[in-house]
């Protein structure tokens, strides 16, 4: 496949917080159905990259979805699953209500969920193994369960690209396997998935592509090539700080 077939093309995206360059010029292309790991040390810019692509923060460069340049407010084809610390867990909301938020993009004016929306919410909760938890308050769930609720919301959004920020942290071994299996199913259906993670073993065994990030894109390729001793030393070295963008 060529870049013309790409579901997402990132061209020279760079982010600065004031004078601090959080992410230097970064470019890559994502094809439909790819499962991509984004690795790098803390502060490498993984969350910044995801938030820029989702349109949450200002950035330089272009984000092209399905061949079209996307304004910040037109990126509903990209679903971002944040680290759970980014969500207000004390907010009085049920599991079903959170997932229903994903259906909002299909409605204009006053949001009135239809029968089909409720059915889709149930389906998405079933996919993440949270059946019968519709009416549970989010504040009563564990960290791993909250992650799966947010994933169900992204599924309800029917986005072409899912970006999961540390989504596998706090998830137990069985549910990690279940989620990886779900990722494979979604990728087979054409959804592209980017997952930031510190679990390099998981990347080596379950992902077919890896973006190595430390303030800038250091590597992009198969995990077997990008996670070698030399590459890892370079990736986690402090000398790879971002260049001014």
């Amino acid at each position: 496949m060529t870049s013309a077939d790409a579901v997402l093309a990132v061209q020279d995206v760079a982010v600065s917080y004031g004078d601090f360059p959080a992410l230097s010029s970064t470019s890559f292309v994502v094809q439909p159905g790819e499962l991509i790991a984004v690795v790098g040390p803390n502060g490498a810019g993984k969350s910044t990259l995801f938030q820029a692509l989702a349109g949450f923060i200002d950035h330089k460069g272009d984000v092209i979805v399905h061949g079209e340049h996307c304004h910040h407010l037109e990126r509903q084809a990209i679903a971002y699953i944040p680290q759970q610390s980014d969500v207000d867990l004390r907010f009085p909301i049920t599991v079903a209500e959170v997932v229903m938020a994903g259906r909002r993009r299909f409605h204009t004016g006053r949001f009135r969920p239809l029968v089909a929306d409720h059915a889709r919410v149930n389906e998405c909760l079933s996919l993440v193994d949270l059946n019968d938890m519709n009416d549970r308050s989010l504040s009563t769930l564990s960290g791993g369960q909250v992650q799966r609720v947010l994933l169900a919301r992204a599924l309800a959004q029917e986005a072409d690209i899912l970006m999961l920020d540390e989504a596998l942290s706090g998830v137990d071994a069985r549910h990690t396997e279940d989620l990886i299996s779900l990722f494979a199913t979604l990728c087979a259906q054409g959804t592209s998935i980017l997952v930031s993670t510190h679990d390099l073993h998981l990347v080596r065994t379950h992902f077919n592509r890896c973006l190595a990030l430390n303030g800038r894109l250091i590597g992009d390729g198969a995990p077997a090539d990008e996670l070698t001793g030399t590459q890892l030393e370079r990736l986690f070295s402090r000398t790879t700080s971002p260049e001014p963008s």
């Binding site: 949450f56 509903q76 207000d88 909002r104 949001f111």
Partner: peptide, 22 residues
């Protein structure tokens, strides 16, 4: 009443609400 769900989504997860077009 008219904006109830948008208020709910925007208060719970501001970034996601922005992405949804709210």
């Amino acid at each position: 009443w008219f904006k109830f769900d948008d208020l709910k989504f925007a208060t719970f997860d501001r970034d996601h609400a922005t992405q949804l077009g709210i």
